[in-house]
Amino acid sequence: MDTLQVILLSLIQGITEFLPISSSAHLILPSQLLGWTDQGLAFDVAVHFGSLIAVMAYFRADIQRMLIAWTGHVIHRRASEDAELAWYVILATIPAVVFGLILNIFGENLFRHLWIIAATTIGFGILLGVADLMYEKRPAKDNRLTLKRAMIIGFAQPLALIPGTSRSGITMTAALMLGLSRDLSARFSFLLSIPLILAASLLKTKDLIESSAAVDWQTLGLGVVVSALSAFACIHFFLNAINRMGFMPFVIYRLVLGVFLLFVIF
């Protein structure tokens, strides 16, 4: 890949990883629409690692509190809200890990077709819009994260294994439908992404080590930096703007993108 291609793909990963518009779909699109060769496993690992750095850096204070509280709960049975939240993140991650391993066995390219991306982009975009309208019209908002709600969100997360769905999009959709606020829906979705991106990165790193492919470390380093910086900025913008603008701009974007993809196909 040339430098422009590396920067563009890294920006796409960083910006779309945490927005409800599907990073996997956007990373597939350049090869489908522009005829670019697949960026390869090593680059995929690098840009996801950059996203992981960004979300862990942004929520570093929350992660530290959760780790301390969770350790205290495991060792000393000392209950707290932070320990509870840590358990919710751990337990809600399990469904996606299980389904991810199953998909890895049968082949992760199973759903990587343009018409599937178009359908999921439109379908889950409409679902996000419905969830946002439900949140607006709900007379009394019970903005509490419980184990039941966390697990429902967790079981929605494996749907994001289908390109075009969006991991952040489907988890935020489920959270909104359960009555959580936009801000809490987004924050829990971002915290859920940490163990999942970490697990995926480790799995892909293992595959990379076992392969005989040559590694261009300069390209990977650039991908990590651009992905991390753009993802950090995206998280900051999203959390500061979501309560004001809602999810409808992302719904409209998904519908326009989905229709464009259908136009390309047919």
Score class of each variant (00 low, 15 high):
4 L>V: 03
5 Q>Y: 10
6 V>A: 12
7 I>E: 13
8 L>A: 02
8 L>N: 00
12 I>N: 09
16 T>G: 04
17 E>I: 02
19 L>C: 07
19 L>F: 10
19 L>H: 12
21 I>W: 15
25 A>S: 14
28 I>G: 01
30 P>F: 07
32 Q>E: 04
33 L>D: 00
35 G>E: 14
35 G>N: 14
37 T>D: 15
37 T>E: 15
43 F>Y: 15
44 D>L: 11
47 V>A: 07
48 H>P: 09
49 F>M: 14
53 I>S: 03
54 A>D: 05
56 M>R: 09
59 F>M: 03
61 A>M: 01
62 D>N: 07
62 D>M: 02
62 D>V: 01
65 R>Y: 04
68 I>E: 00
69 A>V: 12
71 T>G: 14
72 G>D: 06
72 G>H: 03
73 H>P: 01
75 I>W: 05
75 I>L: 11
76 H>W: 07
77 R>M: 11
81 E>D: 13
85 L>F: 01
90 I>K: 13
90 I>A: 14
98 V>F: 05
99 F>S: 04
99 F>V: 11
101 L>Y: 13
103 L>M: 14
104 N>P: 05
105 I>W: 05
106 F>P: 10
111 F>D: 01
111 F>C: 03
112 R>E: 11
116 I>R: 10
120 T>C: 07
121 T>A: 10
129 G>H: 12
132 D>G: 07
138 R>K: 11
139 P>W: 09
139 P>L: 01
141 K>N: 09
141 K>F: 08
144 R>A: 10
146 T>K: 06
146 T>G: 03
148 K>T: 00
149 R>H: 00
150 A>K: 04
150 A>N: 05
151 M>F: 12
152 I>Q: 08
154 G>P: 02
155 F>R: 09
155 F>A: 11
159 L>V: 07
160 A>R: 08
162 I>M: 08
163 P>I: 03
164 G>V: 13
165 T>H: 12
167 R>Q: 13
169 G>C: 04
169 G>W: 10
169 G>E: 01
172 M>R: 12
172 M>N: 05
177 M>T: 08
178 L>P: 07
184 L>K: 03
186 A>V: 04
186 A>Q: 06
188 F>Y: 09
191 L>P: 09
192 L>P: 01
193 S>I: 04
194 I>N: 06
194 I>G: 06
196 L>I: 15
196 L>R: 03
197 I>A: 04
202 L>T: 07
207 D>K: 15
207 D>L: 03
214 A>Y: 03
214 A>N: 11
216 D>A: 14
218 Q>F: 12
219 T>V: 13
219 T>W: 00
222 L>C: 05
225 V>S: 08
232 F>A: 00
234 C>M: 05
235 I>V: 06
236 H>T: 03
239 L>S: 01
243 N>D: 04
244 R>H: 10
247 F>V: 02
250 F>M: 03
250 F>E: 01
251 V>L: 09
255 L>A: 08
256 V>D: 05
258 G>C: 02
258 G>F: 06
259 V>A: 10
261 L>K: 14
